[in-house]
Amino acid sequence: MPPCDTRGMSTAPAVEITSLVKRYDAVTAVDGLSLRVAAGTLTAVLGPNGAGKTTTVEICEGFRRPDAGSVRVLGLDPWRDGAGLRPRVGVMLQEGAGFYPGARPVELLSHLARLHADPLDVPMLVARLGLESVARGRTPLRRLSGGERQRIAFAAALVGRPELVFLDEPTAGLDPQARRATWQLLDELRAAGVTVVLTTHLIDEAERLADQVVIIDAGRVLAEGTPQELTSGVSDDVIRFGGPPRLDVASLRAALPDGSSVKEVAPGSYEVAAVVDPRLLATLTSWCAANDILAEGLQVGHRSLEDVYLELIGAAAERTAP
């Protein structure tokens, strides 16, 4: 998006995956996945557990060897050219893993910093991530909480001043405040021209942060695009409202213009898909009034990324079920 175009890095993709296949014995974890990440952008890889997110990222990090297809990270093959790639890439493993159990947080960060040519100043990084209280103590990493370790692992991914970072579920298990702080940092990384690839199953995280969202399931890309592209144009707008369960949706449907549809998506929770305009809203509310229904939590809006995601994942599950 806006950042980084100025430095002319955006011509070559930071990550280019073509028809990637990875099997573990009988299980095909990644099944012909293709993906392109433009330099300087933030890409969120979204998908349910077992979708192949971690496998894909770990192939990009050079931990695993692809069975088929090609992977280029910063123009290099991560399996063969790992030595050239590793200094340029920051990695955060899943669940904040990757620490010496007996080391203290600052010790670990300082040590990783020493492996780089021009690392960040560790005290400054610690302050920037709000980790002073964790860093001050003499507590070894194995005694820190999962969330604290997670944030140290995030710092560890940044300390070498990488041009590309892979973050495997960076906010999983964080409290809302820490999650928000992480989001701000991710925004800042992107603004600084760092290419970010993160996996998540938090849809609002992807919607809020990402330039590009890639929805994957069963090792394949189901959809990709900007959050706006994914949520627009797929279907009409919706109105959601709550009321007593088991309303006569057919009667409401009959009151609305042609092409509208009404669904009770959960008991007492309704969704009207139609061309939403003030008139439609008026029709809806007058039907409610006529039936003595107080519509609660009435929302006018487009489909959220969550709707799109659940629809895609649901449709994929249906295809494989029968």
């Binding site: 100025t6 492996l115 780089h116 040519a117 920037r128 041009e163 701000q184 800042e188 603004a191 600084a192």
Partner: peptide, 26 residues
């Protein structure tokens, strides 16, 4: 706002940020 103290590393890439890439191995 929240980062005001360490430095005004703004959102535009023109200004230098703490996180401006400078990769390399020791």
């Amino acid at each position: 706002d929240s980062q005001s103290s360490p430095g005004p590393s703004g959102r535009s890439s023109a200004r230098p940020s703490l996180f401006t890439p400078a990769p390399g191995a020791a």
